[in-house]
């Protein structure tokens, strides 16, 4: 998998979430995702950026355009140094939340992506990576 373009954005405020959404949209258009797929990845990015802000205490969003064979994809990585997730299986369940959200952020983002990986260590932070292929 070759990385063609790579940007890192801060996720420190709710304005940053709006900016992440706009940048993800621009990249999704750039790699030729269909309108529905654009909407899916932007929505997933919005959920994950909000998690980074609300539960991770802020962090970064990394936007990468990747090539693999014939297909192009958008890979998004959200990283924070927050409290981490003690029980990953539980966190991925629909409707479960440690805060006051709907508990659809992680599980929803997973359903909206082609690939999803979650890395988290209690006390160290959380990293979520998603990919959407064109």
């Amino acid at each position: 998998m070759a990385v063609v373009r790579d940007d890192v954005m801060p996720v420190r405020s709710s304005d940053d979430i709006v900016r992440v959404r706009q940048e993800v949209r621009a990249r999704a258009i750039e790699i030729g995702l269909s309108l529905v797929d654009q909407t899916k990845i932007v929505t997933a990015a919005s959920e994950l950026a909000r998690n980074t802000l609300d539960y991770g205490g802020g962090g970064t969003a990394r936007l990468e355009i990747v090539h693999e064979g014939m297909r192009r994809g958008l890979r998004l990585t959200f990283e924070d140094e927050g409290p981490g997730i003690p029980d990953i299986a539980l966190a991925l369940k629909d409707g479960w939340t440690s805060g006051k959200g709907l508990g659809l952020g992680l599980s929803g983002a997973r359903r909206l992506s082609n690939e999803f990986t979650l890395d988290s260590r209690p006390g160290e932070g959380t990293r979520v990576t998603i990919v959407r292929w064109s």
């Binding site: 529905v36 909407t39 929803g108 359903r111 909206l112």
Partner: peptide, 13 residues
């Protein structure tokens, strides 16, 4: 919009 509706359903809302 249609794309929004599809995404919302997929999201689980």
């Amino acid at each position: 919009r249609p794309a929004v509706a599809i995404t919302l359903v997929e999201l689980g809302l």
